[in-house]
């Protein structure tokens, strides 16, 4: 993790300085896009050697289970995923225990009836509502989005030239940054802002009027590892968890990527010198 951060700050400082200087000229254009940019958070899974923080994913799962999951589904998340490598890495027994805490409809049985049974590792996360209409009916007409891919389905426009610099920085955390900012972005509406009935003011939500009330407050979830029970901490943890739900093989991807890069760079070096030798006697 320290390698990641030092690598990032090594690249970040001079580039961010450049971006700042060049960015001044573009500031009005960015402001015209609406909501302010979410601040860039330090995520353990960012950068070329990024990894999820197991304890953070476990805490994030706890927040999800106790708070978010009462309205939001995550229909692509299976109980078995909780015990898979590269995730929160609960033990299989723990994941099983979580699964058994839920009743899942199965069937039909030999008599042709559907029946409820305790969840198994192979089951997907049960949705809080039977369908979208039921979810809307219970949530003032708004549909709480499914968590399966949500962390990759949210973004904000970085603008020129930042979007080019982000290639070099390997910045791919727009989604988590936005979600984190949103969870911390509840405020009183400014003077003259007309908030529609049943909506809440959020600094980072496009249009600022969001149907979801502030979902979590200080001390709402009790952590067993002594981590601070603040909204800031909760939002970090649950956002990291959402990123894992959306991208469960991130660690394997970055690990393989490093190996492939090393191979390709060495291979390219060998090819370069071979090429030099082959062309040595031919002026070109």
């Amino acid at each position: 993790m320290s390698t990641t951060m030092s690598f990032r700050s090594f690249l970040l400082r001079p580039l961010a300085a450049c971006a700042l200087v060049i960015g001044i000229g573009f500031a009005p254009a960015l402001a015209a896009e609406g909501a302010p940019h979410p601040p860039r958070e330090d995520w353990s899974f960012a950068g070329p050697f990024g990894k999820y923080d197991r304890a953070q994913l476990q805490r994030g799962f706890q927040v999800f289970k106790e708070v978010c999951a009462s309205c939001h589904s995550a229909h692509l998340l299976a109980f078995r995923n909780l015990a898979q490598p590269g995730g929160p890495e609960f033990s299989e027994a723990q994941a099983k225990a979580v699964a058994e805490g839920y009743q899942v409809q199965d069937g039909p049985n030999d008599a042709g009836d559907m029946f409820d049974r305790p969840g198994r590792l192979s089951d997907r996360w049960p949705s809080p509502f039977p369908n979208e209409q039921a979810a809307r009916a219970s949530n003032g007409g708004a549909y709480p989005p499914d968590f399966s891919t949500l962390a990759k389905a949210r973004t904000y426009e970085v603008g020129f030239p930042g979007f080019l610099i982000d290639i070099l920085l390997q910045y791919q955390e727009q989604g988590p940054d936005y979600i984190h900012a949103l969870l911390n972005g509840y405020k009183d509406p400014p003077e003259g802002f007309s908030l529609p009935e049943g909506a809440h003011y959020n600094e980072f939500f496009p249009g600022h009027a969001i149907k979801m009330p502030q979902p979590i407050s200080e001390g709402q979830v009790t952590y067993s590892d002594g981590s601070p029970e603040t909204v800031e901490q909760y939002s970090h943890d649950v956002t990291a968890f959402m990123m894992w739900v959306a991208e469960p093989h991130l660690e394997a991807r970055k690990r393989l990527g490093f190996q492939v890069m090393i191979f390709l760079i060495i291979f390219a070096g060998l090819l370069y010198f071979t090429k030099k030798k082959v062309w040595k006697s031919v002026e070109h």
């Binding site: 982000d166 290639i167 390997q170 791919q172 970055k254 990527g257 492939v260 890069m261």
Partner: peptide, 11 residues
Amino acid sequence: FAWFLFYIPNY
């Protein structure tokens, strides 16, 4: 290609 594929696949 690998830079995009492994590090910023959704860019």
